[in-house]
Design a protein around this nucleic acid. Structure first.
Length: 203
DNA sequence: CGTTTTTGACCTGCGC
DNA sequence: GCGCAGGTCAAAAACG
């Protein structure tokens, strides 16, 4: 990981502490998903943003219904809330709606410094993509914002970043540049069917 | 030394 | 009911 900054940042980010010079789209605003190809007739594609609704509730504090890991039972099973070993599930919780926003950017680096501190908590490969998807979480206490980064296999330069939730704390750094960045990016925000219904940004 | 990354295991939902 | 795909956690390693 120490390399990624260098391979690209040498010229673009001399010192990340203060300057935010990104080279995203840098000019090309249209395109992104047209040229190229498509394959896989029966791909299930749209799962990415398709199911925004439905999954929710969890986090928020101490209780995490969906978080049961079975193997932890080996040690002290502290919480009664933990469905150790089997089926345990909670329902009817507060339904926190967490908006999801997907940004499709064009950059060499997967992780763009948006001013927040992110901790990586997982990485998984998705079916139709060659590159794995990375899962990040905001390190701020109480801030349950999640973010996942996916880079398209066909276009190495295209990176899809999906934010989930809203930050409840101010940004650490001053990125007035960020607005400028957004302007340069193609922003897709929308719940679901927007994409899956037509076009395929993932092929 | 503290924090973050890495990686495998495990869980849940959906489809067949 | 089982299997696949996706998502998350947790322990250890790596890094500053």
């Amino acid at each position: 990981m120490e390399n990624y900054h260098m391979l690209f940042g040498t010229a673009a980010q001399p010192s990340s502490s203060t300057s935010n010079s990104y080279n995203f789209l840098a000019g090309s605003s249209s395109l992104l998903r047209d040229h190229d190809r498509a394959q896989q007739p029966g791909h299930s594609g749209g799962s990415f943003l398709a199911e925004l609704s439905g999954n929710s509730s969890k986090d928020g504090g101490a209780s995490s219904p969906a978080a049961g890991r079975g193997e932890s039972s080996a040690g002290p099973v502290a919480e009664a809330d933990r469905p150790a070993g089997g089926a345990g599930k909670r329902k009817g919780e507060k339904k926190e709606r967490r908006p999801r926003y997907a940004f499709q950017t064009r950059s060499q680096v997967d992780i763009l410094d948006d001013g927040y501190r992110w901790r990586k908590y997982g990485q998984k490969a998705v079916k139709n993509n060659k590159f794995p998807r990375s899962y990040y979480r905001c390190t701020h206490q109480g801030c349950n914002v999640k973010k996942q980064v996916q880079r398209l296999s066909r276009d190495e330069g295209v990176v899809v970043t999906t934010y989930e939730g809203t930050h409840t704390h101010p940004i650490e750094k001053s990125n007035d540049n960020f607005e400028h960045i957004l302007t340069q990016m193609q922003i897709y925000s929308g719940m679901g069917s927007n994409f899956s219904s037509s076009h395929n940004m993932f092929h």
